[in-house]
């Protein structure tokens, strides 16, 4: 008996697709489930793109500033910290590059990451009607949500480039490593997104917790200040999984030597682990979540 995809509706196979459902199916499939997950994700690629386009065009359709919002947010935060720093309300210390640029890169990365988390965590609940009524790979919803964050990051990158031109700062060839780091950063974001989307399907506390993270997270990340070097604040560079990526990307973008090689290696490992594990759990819990939404 062939036991193929759980999403029979998505298979345009020439031979008859057969779907078999029974309790704990995903669990009982054991390691074979990975092949199914990859196949399912591959078959959902067009759906992901559609959902991404849908979210994008709907997101800014009823706004005046449209995509400009992606720029206004980090600009606002940067301006805020520049003012605070100039007025000596907070003591930032010495940065190797002009402070506005320093803060802009930091907040851009942080806000893209948190924006991704926020979008992903609500992706299932916001589509509750869909999830409960139609069988399709729900991963697509989460991935499409992260896609918005990636797009946001790209827009912000454009802003950073403009500001670098203004300061006449040119990065070296090492900057080519930035996209690679971003891939791992967003892979981690997707991993956490999978988990948050699931949890939010059961309890809505994550929404509140995330708004807390957005308020205070920016100061728990070396986004607007240089990475602390003293114990215990040094922990911020390691424990916060965004920090290694943020520090390295900023260094690479502004031609500084990369100072945190070990942390980056660790960060990449964490990113892969979080992604793989979360994806597996998400897939496992899919039918259970559908009935609770």
């Amino acid at each position: 008996m062939s036991e193929e995809s759980g999403h029979a509706g998505l298979k345009a196979a020439p031979q008859t697709p057969v779907a078999v459902y029974y309790a704990n199916r995903n669990l009982l499939l054991g390691h074979r489930v990975w092949a199914e997950m990859v196949r399912e994700l591959w078959s959902a690629r067009e759906l992901i793109w559609r959902l991404f386009c849908r979210d994008f065009s709907a997101k800014y359709r009823q706004t005046i500033f449209g995509i400009l919002w992606a720029i206004l947010l980090p600009l606002g935060t940067t301006a805020f910290f520049v003012v605070l720093s100039n007025a000596r309300v907070i003591n930032i210390g010495q940065t190797a590059i002009p402070y506005p640029l320093f803060a802009l890169i930091g907040t851009s990365i942080w806000q893209s990451f948190v924006g991704g988390l926020l979008a992903a965590s609500g992706s299932l609940v916001n589509a509750a009607n869909l999830v409960g009524k139609i069988n399709f790979p729900r991963e697509a919803l989460v991935i499409a949500a992260i896609g918005q964050a990636v797009l946001d990051a790209l827009v912000k990158a454009g802003l950073v480039v403009l500001m670098m031109v203004y300061y006449r700062l040119w990065p070296g060839w090492e900057a080519l490593a930035i996209p690679v780091l971003l891939v791992f950063l967003f892979l981690m974001c997707l991993g956490f997104g999978f988990l948050l989307a699931l949890v939010q399907g059961i309890v809505r506390d994550t929404e509140k917790a995330l708004s807390l993270l957005i308020t205070f997270g920016v100061v728990l990340t070396p986004a607007v200040y240089p990475p602390p070097e003293k114990w215990p604040f040094y922990l911020i560079n390691i424990v916060n999984p965004v920090s290694p990526f943020l520090i390295a990307i900023r260094d690479l973008a502004t031609g500084q030597p990369v100072s945190n090689g070990t942390e980056i290696a660790l960060g990449i490992a964490v990113s892969l682990l979080v992604f793989g594990l979360s994806w597996r759990i998400f897939h496992l819990a899919e039918p259970k979540i559908a009935e609770r939404l």
């Binding site: 029979a8 008859t16 697709p17 779907a19 078999v20 069988n135």
Partner: peptide, 8 residues
């Protein structure tokens, strides 16, 4: 157990 043969 449920078995569905074909596109649903």
């Amino acid at each position: 157990r449920i078995e569905m043969r074909g596109r649903v």
